[in-house]
């Protein structure tokens, strides 16, 4: 181990091996994944992400939501993801096809959000939850994101976007709490999070695990 050229060659070969097998070969494999066209519905899945939701995703990134929330439903029998109602099926690679930044996450201090849009459909729920999570769940340990909202004097007609707040949280008389554009975009992004479509591959991945789960029940 006294020849620099040999040491360098060894380091280089290992780096090249690691890169080509983990990075490069996956780039190639993922190139083969395409959208799935469903003839019955006349649509291709996954569906493109709407513009407002795309902007909301930037808010999700900038606030670091990924520090507490994952966006991946694991297979049946590996954790309690489906029992907790986080999705009717496991997440598959194709679900993330159109995302230019994939935020799988690695921490669950809060629930998984991959299908939160399927659980909560009301925009008001998201806004109230962001303004003060205790409005939605008295025991919530989520921090409040009041800075995404503006408390302003009512001039003329009250705003149609103003939050409907209970007396304990209401703004002073003559004032109203209105979501900022960032809050509206974030709510739109969350409401759009749902992987409803059943791709052909979900029927044959981890069938074994799923059937074992069935026997136990």
């Amino acid at each position: 181990m006294n020849r620099f050229s040999l040491i360098f060659l060894g380091i280089f070969v290992i780096a090249a091996l690691s890169w080509s097998s983990l990075v490069f070969s996956n780039q190639r494999a993922y190139g083969a994944i395409t959208a799935h066209y469903d003839e019955n519905e006349g649509k291709a899945f996954p569906q493109p992400i709407p513009g407002l939701a795309q902007r909301g995703k930037l808010v999700y990134q900038d606030l670091g939501c990924v520090a507490c929330h994952t966006q991946q439903v694991r297979r049946p029998g590996f954790g309690s993801d489906q029992e907790r109602g986080w999705g009717e099926r496991q997440s598959v690679a194709r679900d993330y096809l159109y995302e230019d930044r994939v935020l799988l996450g690695a921490m669950r201090l809060g629930p998984d959000l991959r299908n939160v849009g399927a659980r909560q459909t009301e925009a008001a729920w998201y806004l109230q939850h962001l303004y003060d999570p205790k409005l939605v769940n008295a025991d919530s340990t989520k921090p409040a994101y009041t800075f995404l909202f503006e408390t302003r004097r009512i001039v003329g007609q009250p705003s149609s976007e103003a939050l409907a707040l209970p007396a304990s949280h209401a703004a002073a008389a003559g004032y109203e709490v209105v979501p900022t554009d960032r809050a509206l975009a974030l709510a739109a992004y969350l409401a759009n999070l749902k992987d409803a479509y059943a791709y052909p591959e979900i029927n044959h991945v981890y069938v074994e695990a799923a059937s074992k789960e069935g026997e136990q029940k």
Binding site: I11, L22, Q27, G31, I33, Y96, L97, R101, V102
Partner: peptide
Amino acid sequence: FWFPWLYSVAQMVLFFQPARGTSQSVVAAW
């Protein structure tokens, strides 16, 4: 030798020319 290799590949594949779907997660873990 490893750090510039890791850093340049991660920057390219994740941000400047984002890779498809969850292959990003593989690179991020790598």
